[in-house]
């Protein structure tokens, strides 16, 4: 499959692109056992390379969330292997997995998922602080990310004082704080109107391209698919279509 990147990648990113950031091989997830078995995801192969923003779409119950939690090392697959940034996840224990998530995966969660009692800048600086790397450098990175996402005026505000779009941009900035190779976004436009949704996703696409990240976005918002590099359609736990948007 050809990798379509927008805008044009820098030479360094092309070299990186040779190796995919997220690789899933024959990954499936089955819940329950015996007669009560439910297959949330049938064996699936999937890859994301640096600079790509891949949209995963599908109706409710199609296995999108399961797909994202497997890619995000939040659940272990029943079969198959997940490799992120060259690390096979099945080789890590629970504690190592949490640490791995912290350093290599950035989550963009739904709009309400900011910590209500921290201001915008603290939402960001908390992440390296949790990883034991606080300090001026983290503060500078936070300021840079907030500027880049158009939130420079909002650094001292609390989530309750932000609009839905602003909250989502904070969530994107937060996901980038630990400089992860992989970014996973869960319905980032869920609570936004069309215009705000497009704005948020285009910012995500821009950051992903500029910083050479690999990103997967679960969404049911068809209006933003043109901003993505590729679209994967899931139905009943099976990939039914995969191709450029």
């Amino acid at each position: 499959m050809t990798t379509f990147i927008q805008p044009a990648p820098s030479p360094a990113q092309v070299v990186q692109a040779a190796q995919s950031t997220l690789t899933m091989r024959g990954v499936s997830k089955v819940f329950g056992d015996g007669d009560a078995q439910v297959t949330a995801l049938h064996p699936t192969d999937f890859e994301v390379r640096p600079g790509e923003l891949v949209a995963v779409i599908g109706p409710s119950g199609s296995g999108k969330s399961t797909f994202l939690t497997l890619a995000g090392a939040l659940q272990t697959p029943t079969e198959g292997s997940v490799t992120i940034a060259g690390q096979e996840l099945s080789r890590l224990n629970a504690r190592q997995l949490a640490d791995f998530r912290l350093h290599h995966i950035g989550f963009v969660l739904q709009a309400s998922n900011l910590i209500p009692y921290l201001n915008v800048r603290e939402q960001l600086t908390l992440v390296p602080q949790l990883a034991g790397r606080g300090g001026a450098q983290a503060g500078a990175l936070a300021d840079e990310l907030l500027r880049s996402l158009g939130l420079a005026e909002r650094t001292g505000h609390y989530p309750g004082e932000l609009s839905g779009g602003q909250k989502q941009r904070v969530a994107i900035a937060r996901a980038l704080m630990n400089d992860p190779q992989l970014i996973l976004a869960d319905e980032p436009t869920a609570s936004l109107d069309g215009e705000r949704g497009r704005e948020v996703v285009s910012m995500l696409a821009r950051e992903v391209a500029e910083r050479g990240k690999a990103a997967v976005m679960v969404t049911h918002d068809e209006r933003v698919l043109d901003l993505c590099t590729r679209v994967v359609r899931l139905e009943d736990g099976r990939v039914t279509a995969q191709g450029t948007a």
Binding site: G58, K64, S65, Q75, F107, L109
Partner: peptide
Amino acid sequence: DPLQALGQNG
């Protein structure tokens, strides 16, 4: 569960 932070969508 960190899973709870992810939405309960499909």
